[in-house]
Design a protein around this nucleic acid. Sequence first.
RNA 1: GCCGGGGUGGCGGAAUGGCAUACGCAGCGGACUUAAACUCCGCGGCCGCAAGGCAUAGGGGUUCGAAUCCCCUCCCCGGUACCA
Length: 814
Amino acid sequence: MTDRYDPHEIEPKWRNRWLADNLYHASDDDPRPKWFALTMFPYPSGDLHTGHWYAMAPSDAAARYRRMLGFNVMFPMGFDSFGLPAENAAIKRGVDAKEWTYANIDRMREQLKLMGAGFDWDREVVTSDPEYYRWSQWWFLQLYNRGLAYRAEAAANWCPGCKTVLANEQVVDGRCERSDDVVQRRFLTQWFFRITAYAEELLKFEGIQWPESIRTRQANWIGRSEGARLSFAVDVPGVDELLTVFTTRPDTVFGATFMVLAPEHALVEKITTAEQRASVTAYAESASRATEIERLSTDREKSGVFTGAYAINPFNAERIPIWIADYVLVTYGTGAIMAVPAHDQRDFEFAEKFGLEIRPVYAPKEGALPNPLREALAHGSRTISSGAFDGLDEAQAFEQMVDWASERGVGERTTNYRLRDWLISRQRYWGAPIPIIHCEQHGIVPVPEEDLPVTLPEHVTFDSSGVSPLTQIADWVNVRCPVDGGPARRETDTLDTFMCSSWYQMRFADPHNSERPFSRAAAKQWLPVDQYTGGGEHAVMHLLYSRFFWKAARDMGLVEGDEPMLRLVTQGVILGPDGNRMSKSRGNVVAPDELVSQWGADAFRCQLMFVGPWDQGGPYNPTGMAGIVKWLHRLWGLATEEPTLSTDADEEATRTLRRATHKTIRAVTAEMEGFRFNTLISRLMEHTTAMQRARAAGSVDRAAWEEAIATAILLTAPLAPHLAEELWERIGKPYSVHLAAWPVCDAALARDDEVELVVQVNGKVRDRVTLPLEASEEEARVAVFASAIVRQWLDGAEPRRVIYVPGKLLNVVL
RNA sequence: GCCGGGGUGGCGGAAUGGCAUACGCAGCGGACUUAAACUCCGCGGCCGCAAGGCAUAGGGGUUCGAAUCCCCUCCCCGGUACCA
């Protein structure tokens, strides 16, 4: 037995023992209350990086804490293993996508084990396994059968680099979230999930503890706005279609002096006059060529063209010109607006540029209307120039005008959402095939459930075009129609990987079920997730999709409750030592493997938790490792080298040590509940110092010492699991510390006997006095005014006022 | 522009109305050691000999008392953006 702390000796020993004993397996028949702790599973990119450690080590600590509190904890791990990097490796380097992926998984699984986390490896799921994606396909069919999956032509985001469409959520600043290529707009027939059916419910966050920032981002993304649809007749011979607009300000309809359609709007073709056709076509073409980035630039000057056609305002029968302009988006509302330049700044700028009428329909809140208007008047006092509706405030005008339109069938109150349906088809190979067959006779035919999985062909070759190989494999594509056995073709698009990760937490409840995605009993036992941890960057992707999926599953009667994850804590981004995101090009990447082989997993875990508040992230510099390592050595030394123990040690010293121990239990427990690992560790360091002081002071009470050491080991166990296990054994406790009970604070022992009262004169600290804990205000005053320093400051003057905060402070005001 | 989070020693950070700078890093001094450190002890905001004064991005306010609450301004990070 070595006497020195050597992580390289103890860490492999305990890791192997835990694995051999299956210590962290969550049993289905355990009477204790369940706790489903989940940290976002990784994409198997090939290497576990510092970001993974930063996310997972504290998640593991929190799960271990719950286990010690007496919960039947399930803390599973898996791999989100479909996706483009595997395919890119296949295209660029000629490796096999599957082999590349599974080699990475094997490597990362070993790296994850080095972390010493308490993952239940029996429940591992890999989304690219047929046993898993079979059920992803099954979910697709359920959603299809319920009308929540559909195929439609729509303007889609096309990434030229990835050669596939993307969901709106995967477009960041007009660029592909993955490859950074500028996204193009293409009209394509694609598969969608009807997430908009749940838009309203997704805005509610009842019964869950999620960070404000994530809830806000989801709410902004869903973008609910209340308003009305108004229909305008089109004054074009032979066109009886109505031009319907969505507006949040139907109360300004008398100020509508022109209409604007998105260049892609279906009506444009039908209403454009012969005279205007050439310029309209040219404008529409240039708009379609413009990238999303160019079109979305808000400081760009307004542009547009007159169609030559007019609409009729249903309120006053006025003929108003119809324009097209790219500031109106085909994807929002109805793709058409009534322009009210006097009360909308964008319309105002457009009207100014093209010399269109600007007609105020509200009097300003103060003063007279400027003439001419310098900018749009967003809100006014009372309606003017609005016919029979004059003299109303905004709310009244809204109500009365929408009622008027509803009665005549030319409008209705409506709620509009910015959220679009989730585009889930991808023109890529390395994903779960969409289980659909296209039959010449029967059109879209779902693959029968008993034929699942639709297996992804292996060992495919990529040609230089980058087109998905699935389209090239004739004996995979050509199938018999399930209805009549006639000739048919498989759908060659695959599912967005975000679809595979939208339900993975459900699969963890019953990961090996080959009859269904999970049994009802397993769902009841384990779901929903009690504590989810991961990166906030998934706010409007994974975290939104998972909520949608859960609600759909609930409506199918498969799960209970309205939310998939009850409590969410998102960690910040760990940065390189220079304060920038870690990247190879910057040369600021900190490689976990090197640090672990030098200092051990426990030290690395602890240092990552110690650097700062977890939810904020921040720079990470390995130079700080020394402090953590010193602390672990100090703890080791205390646990392995006993002081002189006695039963008649100094009573006050004993009391002091026990007080430190119980105060530490209280503080560490609170920090653990709040995911404040940095201050948690500082508390443990202080306790370690207190024990060192006690040992240095001479003989120590045996019971108090043993309590202090055992407590320190227990409180450290979630953070440094290997070290704690070793020390627990060395002090003669039964295996395993990770199954031991979390210590409980004895309030009487934690209590202070006396307090140090801060003495202020006019709010400035001048002195301190020590008083018994129960000292009255009168006793405090006596002690304070007896102080020579205080009397010097008073200089004979009478205090005007005395503020007393029991146990803390006494302020003398002159 | 709008929404969210921030700005405290040389550095990471602590304190969310009551002792500013906990706990660490780096630094300095000392002990032990032939020598060392993943050992131990100590020092450490700025000005000042001291008494004391001044310091939490900047300015103003509330309060007996403000890093903390309110108002204004500046800066950094993240999100989002012609959303009708």
